[in-house]
Each structure stands twice: as C-alpha cells, then as structure tokens.
C-alpha cells in the first residue's frame, strides 16, 4: 500500500502456504495521533510470531484491529483467509484473543467464567460443564474453580484468561503481552503453555516488550515503534544486527578512562558510551569472543578493572542498533 518506507517486502514466505494474517498498510489514528501508521504483516500458519515494541508503540492497537475489535482507518487485511472488515463474523469464528488486561468477570467464579464462554460458543448442558472442567484442570486451576475471580492472584487470572481463549481451539490466538506482570515461575508456565499450543498447530501472534521473550518463543519477530515497523526477521537475524549485547566495564582508576575508551572503540569498532556516574564504559560487542578479546587488551595495556559484565541487548539497545540511535529513524531491513 502507500505505507511509507516500510521494512521492504514481506519475508519470503512461500506463496502457496496460506497465511494466518496478511495485512497491508493498516492505519489507526486517535485524533491526530497515528497509533498504527501503515503496517504490513505476513504471519504464516502454525508459527509463533512476536510483535516487539516499547510502551505506546501501537502493539495493542494493531492487535485489536486484527481481532476485529476496532476498524482500521485505512489498509486491508485478511485473517485466516477472511476479510477483516467485510467478513468479521467469519474471522471471529477462527480466532481468540487474550487482551493485555484480564477480560474476565470478576464477580463470577473461574468455572462460571469458562462455562459462560462455553455456552456462548454453543456447548450445551453437560458438554459445557465438561469443557470448563477440562480447561480448569489443564491450567492447574481445579482447586480454585469455585472461587470468585476477584480473589485470584495475577498468575491465576492470566491462566484463566488464556484458558478462556481456548474453549474452542482457535486457528489463530492473539496474546497481548501474555507475561507482563508475572513472576519468573508463572512466566515460565505461560511460555510452556504457549509452546504446547503452537505444537498442537495453533498459530500464535503475541506482543511483548521483552526481547528475550520474543527470542525464547517466536519463529519470527516484527519490531514496531511509533506505529511503524522498524525491523523484521528471525531472532538470529535481529541479533546479528544488534550484536550479542553490551559490554559494561568499570575501571579501578578513573584517570584511565580516556585510554580505555579509545582502546575499546578501536577493538570493537563501535561507539563507546560513558556513564555519567564516572568510571564506567559501555560498548556494543559483536560477539562474546570479541568482548573477551577487548577485555584482554585492556588488561594487557595495564588498565585495571573493578568490574565487568556482558548484558544481552535490552530493548533500548535493539532500538538503538536498528534505528541507528535516531528516534523513529527510517526503517532498516534485517537480513542475515
């Protein structure tokens, strides 16, 4: 479509494979603000696909459009082969969405919430109850089945909310920030569940603010910011563009800061950032190997370190690398 300067053509998905989502030039504005500003998306069937972006990037807005909850201002899309706008009812028959915030009835019990949805989908009588119980068991919620949802913990709510999306196994499942606010154990549980679903053939489109989450789960990642796609690729491809992360060093003697910065810049071929607190330097390292060699060079030059660490790239650093540091810089295609 007329979307300006997007990340090139869609990936080389074989044309014969029907796509779960095929979107062209989607736009959604709130007032004068373009929350989604011309996004193309091709999500193949049967994969986990991640949309990565910071707060306010437009992830939720994009997902709500694809789940038929809000109408695009411009652009076209087919979801599971049905047109998003003209055939919304057919789309709804094949998707399920777990939104960013729990969409459960707090006054009802966990079981009643599932029962409500099972009946709306058309399960009758005992079949509805059986389906609810089966989901409760699968999500480890049987013990809490007759507790009101308002007494659930965050992790329990999340599990119930996802269970509520699986009353009928959807062809395409939307998960908007499925692990935000969960503790590490609950996060692992949700990841395991997402993988299991994908293994059973459900296409999963999830959003996340965490690079490691996208990395852990997704076959393909789209990075968006300010409503635009700024990169797309596999996790490997993105990392190749970003490097394996940042090397942080702290010097024992602040007087050697300039010497250390010059040396690191020369060895790693990247801009060295000085932390305002003083004797600390950060620099992007292409690989752990390169980082180790740079550290060895510092020591060989007699520069003593009080601390060093290697951090995998944060979302900030990914954006920094992908956009060349400029805010909302032109898109950059990430290719191996």
């Amino acid at each position: 479509m007329d979307a300006p300067d997007l990340a090139g053509r869609p990936p080389a998905v074989a044309d014969s494979v029907p796509l779960a989502v095929r979107a062209r030039g989607l736009v959604k504005s709130f007032g004068t603000m373009r929350a989604v500003d011309g996004i193309d998306l091709d999500v193949p069937r049967g994969v986990i696909f991640a949309i990565l972006g910071p707060n306010g990037a437009g992830k939720t807005t994009l997902m709500r459009m694809l789940a038929t909850l809000s109408r695009p201002d411009a652009g076209t899309a087919t979801v599971m082969g049905h047109d998003l706008v003209t055939d919304a009812h057919a789309v709804r028959g094949e998707i399920a969405m777990t939104g960013q915030f729990a969409s459960l009835d707090e006054d009802l019990t966990g079981r009643e919430n599932l029962l409500l949805l099972a009946r709306l989908w058309g399960f009758r009588g005992r079949a509805a109850g059986a389906r609810a119980d089966e989901l409760l068991a699968a999500f480890d919620l049987s013990d809490a089945a007759s507790k009101q949802v308002k007494d659930y913990s965050g992790g329990m709510r999340r599990r119930l909310d996802i269970a509520a999306s699986l009353v009928v196994t959807p062809g395409l499942l939307f998960l908007d920030e499925p692990t935000t606010g969960l503790d590490p154990k609950a996060r692992q549980d949700v990841w395991r569940m997402i993988r299991a679903l994908a293994a059973s053939g459900v296409t999963i489109l999830l959003t996340t603010q965490y690079l490691d989450e996208a990395d852990q789960l997704a076959a393909r990642i789209v990075v968006i910011d300010h409503g635009r796609k700024i990169a797309e690729g596999t996790s490997r491809e993105l990392k190749a563009a970003v490097g394996s992360g940042f090397l942080h060093v702290a010097l024992a003697d602040p007087a050697r800061l300039d010497a250390a910065a010059t040396l690191l810049a020369a060895r790693l071929g990247a801009v060295v950032q000085r932390s305002p607190e003083g004797a600390r330097l950060s620099v992007m390292a292409g690989s752990p190997q390169a980082a180790t060699e740079a550290l060895a060079a510092l020591i060989a030059a007699g520069i003593e370190l009080s601390d060093f660490s290697m951090a995998s790239p944060s979302l900030d650093e990914v954006f920094f690398a992908l956009t060349g540091g400029g805010d909302a810089a032109p898109a950059q295609e990430v290719r191996p």
Partner: peptide, 20 residues
C-alpha cells in the same frame, strides 16, 4: 464496568449475536 475491564472485548471477539 464491563467495558472498562475489557470483558466486552472478549464478547465482541466471539462469533455471537452482537446484541446478546
């Protein structure tokens, strides 16, 4: 209340009679 909690989003993404 339901709209604020996103509950209606779930209902609206179901293939049901919209006025139900």
């Amino acid at each position: 209340t339901d709209l604020g909690k996103g509950l209606f989003d779930r209902f609206r993404s179901l293939p049901i009679w919209p006025l139900a």
